[in-house]
């Protein structure tokens, strides 16, 4: 892997790219669960890993919060036990109660993970990752398995927690909407390398990216011409949104039909799903 980036304190970095690009590996290397072959990881002036000096901080000492793709809740513990497991002996136990309340899990605190829905499990995973008040939160496609409504509410919750605790975030995501809503910085990875980096607008709107991974699905509601452009209202992720697109898409964007937009918005890459 060849990766270099700097994350500003309190910022959110989104890592994206096709599967197999090394995104999860990158997160695990930051957390100390895997050691990189070469290179250096520094956090807040502290060297976490340096192959030159053979120095490597254990994951226990790095104090990152990690939210796994499969949530990794402990099946034999209740919701509350999953959270309080993260406490050190000298820690104040009130943080568990606070987090349960903030995530709306107080009523469910006695349940086992298998008795919870996907969204509830994800909230437990997020709350558990925050018990130790980490300075860096690592999220591996945390909301991928959830429906849109649940995704929005959890994204809002995440932003609220960031404001409250002031941690920085590295989040792996395939969801462009999520990326625009959350991220200050974006890194596009492919084959273990950074293909593109910058703000979401810089990466996805102003410039081209070659990745095929960024897709918006929607249904065309209306399509009108104005000033030599198409103004399309579309149902995207259960919300009505307006897109401004080049005129020559007119024949393809017909009300009632589904469409798929590939980033970047270039005519060659717009495609209809069911052209019948």
């Amino acid at each position: 892997m060849e990766i270099a980036f700097t994350l500003k304190q309190g910022n959110i970095l989104a890592v994206t790219g096709p599967s197999g690009a090394g995104k999860t590996t990158l997160l695990k290397q930051i957390a100390g669960l895997i050691n990189p072959q070469f290179g250096k990881i520094t956090f807040d002036g502290q060297v976490w890993f340096d192959d030159a000096t053979k120095k490597s901080f254990s994951p226990q000492l790095r104090n990152t919060g990690f939210v796994f793709q499969d949530y990794a809740l402990f099946p034999h513990f209740t919701v509350e036990e999953n959270l309080s497991f993260a406490l050190a002996k000298e820690d104040d136990k009130s943080i568990v109660t606070e987090l349960l309340e903030a995530t709306g899990l107080t009523q469910l605190s006695g349940r086992k993970p298998f008795q919870l829905s996907g969204g509830q499990q994800q909230r437990v995973a997020l709350a558990r990752a925050l018990v130790r008040k980490p300075r860096l939160l690592l999220l591996d496609e945390p909301f991928a398995a959830l429906d849109y409504a649940m995704r929005y509410s959890l994204q809002a919750l995440l932003l609220k927690f960031r404001q409250q605790f002031g941690f920085s975030i590295v989040i792996v995501t395939h969801d462009v909407g999520e990326l625009f809503r959350l991220a200050d910085q974006v890194v596009v990875m492919d084959h273990g390398k950074i293909e593109k980096a910058g703000t979401p607008v810089e990466v996805f709107v102003k410039e081209d990216v070659s990745s095929q991974d960024f897709i918006i699905h929607g249904e065309v509601l209306t399509c009108t011409q104005q000033n030599n452009q198409l103004h399309v209202s579309a149902l995207i992720e259960n919300k009505i949104r307006t897109l401004t697109l080049p005129l020559h898409f007119e024949t393809e964007l017909i009300p009632g039909k589904n469409f798929t937009l590939h980033y970047p918005l270039d005519s060659a890459q717009i495609r209809l799903i069911n052209p019948s």
Binding site: L33, A72, F74, F85
Partner: peptide, 22 residues
Amino acid sequence: PASLREASYTLGKSERETFFRI
């Protein structure tokens, strides 16, 4: 799943504690 062990480590627990409690 490996993530159970990894989650425990990121929550500050040692290998021994992870083994016996998780």
